[in-house]
Amino acid sequence: MEQKKETLLEIHDLSVSFRMYDHGLEQKDLKAISDLHLTVHSGEIVAIAGSSGSGKSLLASAILDILPDNATVQGHMHYKGQELTRERQKQLRGTKIALVPQSVAYLDPLMKIGPQADGHYKPKPTEKRRKLFERFQLPEHTEKLYPFQLSGGMARRVLVSTALITDAELIIADEPTPGMSLEQALEALRMFREMADEGKAVILITHDMDLAFEFADRVAVFYAGTTVETALASDFKTGPEALRHPYSKALWKALPQNGFEPIPGFQPYAGSLPKGCLFAPRCPYKTEQCEKQVPPVREIRGGEVRCYHGA
């Protein structure tokens, strides 16, 4: 179904590393994202799931070119079929690609909410913003408040509105729902769904698996800075037998409603990644091959998986 739709964003072999001081003046590169693949089509919501430190937020920064100065990006990103150069990223961010950041810390503490949500756009989208605030049940006086006067849930709704004000074709929402009531979270996600149905695309970075499965079309599972599997959301609803990668299966089983069963071990630290498959040290099915070489991306049953044994 999605394959017929236009490919909006295509990411191939993306790596992000940080130059750090190791001992004394020795410098060292820390690879935070390695060989990441992700495709986003217009008209769909792609959820990105994974534990903290798996590189979810970094991916958002890499797409927008707002990484810190000591970061280097390798690999290819294409937007609407054209290479996403720095120049293009600069043009697209805030207009065609919008970010919903994680927390209230992303709001200027000394600027009132109204002008802040309106942004620097000209003409000022004040009318549109007021309608959005109303839809999000933000009281009228919210626009006169400062960020520190907002509750966590209000701040999230303001942050979501900043993206919906724009005419963005791609919205990257970095954990937009925590702190909202269930009703408000559903409203926010319904609005994302609406936008997707209008032909736009949403990348939904989230910890809330249930909401992701409910609203997303596809789910990309992140592990240690790479996508181990991209599957239809319905596969996650079906259960582990529909999934392809051992980590996705483990993730499914670790959910409270599915047994709450963790697997031993920890996600590897960016400075000490294993040589072959990043999941190999914790994988019950690993072979010699897994430890030597990073497995390529394979297409299985309409999903993508980075595993020799996935089926």
Partner: peptide, 23 residues
């Protein structure tokens, strides 16, 4: 982080200085 977000919204260096820096 708020300047990072301003940048993500497409504000240029000097717009950021005017809107957020000076304040």
């Amino acid at each position: 982080e708020y300047v990072l977000f301003a940048k993500a919204r497409g504000e240029g260096q000097w717009t950021i200085l005017r809107r957020h820096g000076l304040r």
